[in-house]
């Protein structure tokens, strides 16, 4: 079980501050989603948590160990990343693609071991990708491809999974399917998830905790019900929003200009 500790994290690009003094912890078995308008610094934040960007100040640690001090190989056994725009290399089978998740374990000079292959087969089975194992990953549909990317991350057998807009480009059914698969993994394996999502309704439905980011700073942090509040969201997103209760679920509805909110 792993805890992610983000402490006083700032990331700058030249004179621009992308993430400004951000601190939060994510406990094992917890799903934390970072929300916020475009340019809030969500992607920069999760990329820094995943060790792909260097922090200008502050630290990210997993169980007390600094992510920035880890080698690529060590980091890949502690944190898995589902990027916003994953590359699907043409000509690579789904099985080989998911098998890339085992790179840190067998290295690049040795073939995957029987244990590596077993883990990949298990993940393919769990994510219902086994029938597609021999397919070229570049020929998969959007939903299948995102499942393959998630499978690759799960094949890394890490306790922390970082996802940057994992539902980009998917229709609603595939978005929900993917997030449900992830929720099952969190429940069964006690994963610690740090994700970003644009869809506020789905973010509120699936996360245990939401962090609202605006201009690089945390403006709200708490349970979805405490963060998804129409006046706060409206202020941060710069538009009129309504949070509507539908059968106990908070649904965020944009109020279009010219439409009177009642």
């Amino acid at each position: 079980m792993s805890t992610v500790e983000v402490s006083g994290l700032s990331v700058r690009a030249g004179a621009t501050t992308l993430v400004d003094d951000v601190s939060f912890n994510v406990e094992p078995g917890t799903w934390c989603t970072v929300i916020g308008p475009n340019g809030a610094g969500k992607t920069t934040l999760v990329e820094t948590v995943a060790g792909l960007r260097r922090a200008s100040a502050g630290t990210v640690a997993i169980d007390g160990e600094l992510v920035a001090a880890m080698s690529e190989r060590e980091r890949a056994t502690r944190i898995a990343l589902v990027p916003q725009h994953p590359v699907a290399p043409p000509g690579m089978s789904v099985e080989d693609y998911v098998g890339l998740g085992r790179t840190a374990y067998h290295g690049v000079l040795r073939a995957p071991s029987a244990a590596d292959r077993r883990i990949v087969a298990g993940v393919l089975e769990r994510l219902e990708l086994a029938p597609l194992a021999g397919r070229d990953v570049a020929t998969l549909s959007g939903g299948e491809r995102q499942r393959a990317v998630l499978a690759r991350a799960l094949a890394q057998s890490t306790r922390v999974v970082v996802l940057d807009e994992p539902t980009t480009g998917l229709d609603l059914r595939h978005q929900v399917t993917l997030l449900e698969l992830l929720r099952a993994e969190v429940a069964e394996c006690g994963l610690c998830v740090v994700a970003t999502l644009h869809d506020l309704t789905l973010a509120a439905q699936f996360a245990d905790r939401l962090v609202l980011l605006d201009r690089g700073r945390i403006v709200l942090d708490g349970a979805p019900r405490d963060v998804v509040r129409d006046e706060e969201l409206a202020r941060r997103y710069g538009m009129t929003l309504r949070v509507v209760d539908v059968d106990g679920t908070d649904v965020v509805v944009p109020v279009l200009s010219g439409v009177t909110a009642t």
């Binding site: 690529e72 190989r73 994953p86």
Partner: peptide, 10 residues
């Protein structure tokens, strides 16, 4: 970036 996240010292 993805290679690095998979553990490759690119």
């Amino acid at each position: 970036d993805e290679s690095r996240s998979l553990g490759l010292p690119v």
